[in-house]
Amino acid sequence: MQVEFWFEFASTYSYPAAMRVERLARAAGVDLVWRPFLLGPIFGAQGWNDSPFNIYPAKGANMWRDLERICDDEGLTLTRPPVSFPQNGLHAARIALVGADEIWGPEFVRSVYRANFAEQKDISDMAVLAAILTAQGLDAGDVMARATTSENKERLKAQTAEGIARGLYGAPSFFVGDELFWGNDRLEAALKWA
């Protein structure tokens, strides 16, 4: 069996999940599929125009404290993004979708999460994303050109629609076949199921 890791770059809890999922899947002997998607259409369908962590201030305050504890346990740096939360991860998701088919993809995903939640960088800025790609020894111009083709844009829309059709409602989420596991704290359960 394989585990599909569905993630959104604006998702706080996807940060620790992205930093540990590959290591844990490898240790469990489970194949891993990286599936970037967009939460905006899902939230919009529920009548939200913002993160539920902003809509409900008490929930948001607790989320940040909870995330601090999780990141501390995992040895991850956490610094709240300097620009509005959640940051726009559209361009990063398009690039991650290209990378999902290539060996550099997982490290790109982790680097974007570090940029957002540890380094206080604006991940909607194409220059920030280009610097991440260049630091990985990639031709940023080539990768970004492939990410912005109409075919890749439609592929991301289709992947998001697929997630919605399969019952996806938040990030991070993990699918093992038709079984849905939601949340960073359900990663181990998904791997055990697989």
Rank of each mutant, 00 (worst) to 15 (best):
G105W: 00
A145D: 01
D31T: 02
R110V: 09
E4L: 09
T160M: 07
A118L: 05
A28T: 03
A118R: 04
A25V: 15
G75W: 04
I42K: 08
I95M: 12
Y169Q: 06
S84E: 12
A130R: 08
F85C: 01
Y56T: 06
T77L: 14
D185W: 14
G75D: 04
V128K: 09
G89F: 02
A190Q: 09
Q159M: 14
D139W: 07
R146E: 12
F108C: 09
N116W: 03
L156Y: 15
R23F: 05
P106S: 12
V143R: 10
M19D: 06
F7Q: 07
N49Y: 10
F175W: 12
L180R: 08
G40D: 12
E179R: 14
T149C: 02
G60D: 03
A165V: 12
R114L: 08
C71I: 05
A190W: 09
E4F: 10
R186S: 08
W64I: 04
A140N: 04
E107Y: 06
G167L: 13
P82F: 04
G47N: 00
F37C: 11
E119W: 04
F174D: 10
P106R: 11
A61W: 01
E8H: 02
A118I: 06
R80F: 01
E179V: 14
V33L: 14
F117V: 01
D66I: 05
P57V: 04
R80P: 02
A18D: 10
E188L: 14
G137M: 00
W34F: 07
A28L: 03
A140T: 03
A92G: 15
A58N: 11
Q87C: 03
A127H: 12
H91P: 05
L38H: 14
F7L: 14
D125A: 06
M144S: 02
I42H: 06
A131N: 13
D122V: 07
V21D: 08
V83R: 13
S150L: 13
Y15P: 02
R114D: 09
A161Q: 02
R146A: 10
Y15G: 05
S14C: 15
D142V: 04
I95C: 07
W182S: 13
V30R: 15
P36D: 08
P41R: 11
W104H: 03
L97Y: 05
I164L: 05
A61E: 13
A118K: 01
A161T: 00
M63Q: 04
I164Y: 06
I42P: 03
M126S: 10
Q136T: 02
P81Q: 10
E162C: 11
V30C: 12
S84K: 02
H91F: 05
P86I: 00
E102I: 01
A18T: 08
A189G: 11
N184W: 15
T77Y: 09
F7S: 04
Q2V: 05
D178G: 12
N54W: 09
E162G: 13
